[in-house]
């Protein structure tokens, strides 16, 4: 019964088809995402030289890590840069999205497109141009400050200076993209709600505070979680900002982040085990901060009255 056989075979192929269609993603994620992540926990237990021996040493890498001031500095730098870049970015995006949502706004397409220009600019290019603008001797910013009798400020030579500088780069690159996400959500809010509020005499601030912000809750939670995961793994900006000692973000490690520290130990010093221990610590930090953020941001609720 060749015909029946063919039908059975076809229906089998049909039944397998959905799994075959989703398989590529799961395969790629397993091989290049999940397995490496789990393997990080394993390698962290070894003294692991990429071209030599690897010896099981239990939790020695972690004991060493917690006694390493460079680790605590890097952890602080990471959190500081993340806070300085995320908070302003989300606030700016909130305000701009609210402004762009006005029904009678002219040049709306032009404004929206401009917002996306930083997003298409690479981190590397962004860092090179901002590093020049923040330069102590020839930078645009110090020249401007000089007109007011301030400075020159050597941004790279201080913790707050280098953190601010990197935070400005991150904020610049992402605020427009976030604005568009917020704007898309705002456009789903019926116009009549704003009109009714306006008739009731609610001004711009009240409309922003009591209509826009609460209706953005899901997308705000989403952007906070993604900027936590992305922001805490920041690498390229601190690497490129100092061209004399890139792996430490300047000789004094003022802006060395955890991922940069991981790179320095793993690929600069060939200590895969110690580098992986840094990765594990970063993982724990990300989970902790993301959970905290999630809990805090779910408290944004529509206010009564």
């Amino acid at each position: 019964m060749p015909e029946a056989e063919a039908r059975v075979r076809q229906s089998l192929a049909e039944r397998v088809a959905p799994y075959a269609y989703i398989a590529p993603f799961f395969l790629l994620f397993a091989v290049f995402g999940l397995v490496p992540l789990l393997f990080t926990f394993y390698v962290a237990l070894f003294d692991w030289n990429p071209i030599g021996e690897h010896v099981f040493i239990g939790f020695d890498n972690f004991t060493r890590l917690f006694g390493d001031t460079r680790f605590w500095d890097a952890a602080w730098n990471t959190i500081s840069i993340w806070l300085l870049s995320t908070v302003p970015q989300l606030l700016i995006a909130l305000v701009l999205a609210h402004l762009l949502n006005h029904a009678r706004l002219r040049l709306a397409v032009f404004f929206r497109m401009s917002m996306l220009v930083p997003y298409i600019t690479s981190v590397a290019a962004t860092t090179v141009v901002f590093a020049q603008m923040f330069d102590r001797d020839y930078g645009l910013l110090n020249w401007l400050l000089g007109l007011f009798g301030v400075g020159p400020i050597d941004f790279l030579q201080s913790g707050w200076g280098s953190h601010t500088m990197i935070a400005v780069m991150v904020t610049w690159r992402w605020f427009g993209y976030t604005t568009l996400l917020y704007l898309a959500s705002l456009q789903a809010v019926p116009r009549t709600i704003y009109e009714a509020a306006s008739v009731d005499g609610a001004g711009a601030w009240k409309q922003f505070r009591h209509i826009s912000v609460p209706s953005l809750r899901p997308v705000i939670v989403f952007t906070i979680v993604t900027s936590t995961i992305g922001g805490l793994q920041i690498f390229t900006e601190p690497l490129l900002v100092s061209n004399t000692s890139p792996l430490t973000c300047g000789p004094a490690r003022h802006c060395q982040t955890l991922t940069l520290f991981l790179y320095e130990q793993g690929f600069g010093q060939f200590q895969f085990g110690y580098g992986s221990a840094i990765g594990v610590a970063l993982f724990v930090l990300i989970i902790a901060v993301a959970t905290l953020n999630y809990v805090l941001s779910t408290r944004i609720r529509p206010e009564r009255g």
């Binding site: 799961f26 995402g33 992540l37 390698v43 793994q233 793993g266």
Partner: peptide, 26 residues
């Protein structure tokens, strides 16, 4: 289907850049 889709969404919250050392080994 639904369980697998949930897994897809959840993978978005998994930080994988910190696993560059094993990624490089692979």
């Amino acid at each position: 289907r639904n369980a697998l889709f949930l897994v897809v969404v959840l993978t978005m919250t998994v930080p994988t850049q910190l696993a560059v050392i094993p990624q490089y080994m692979i």
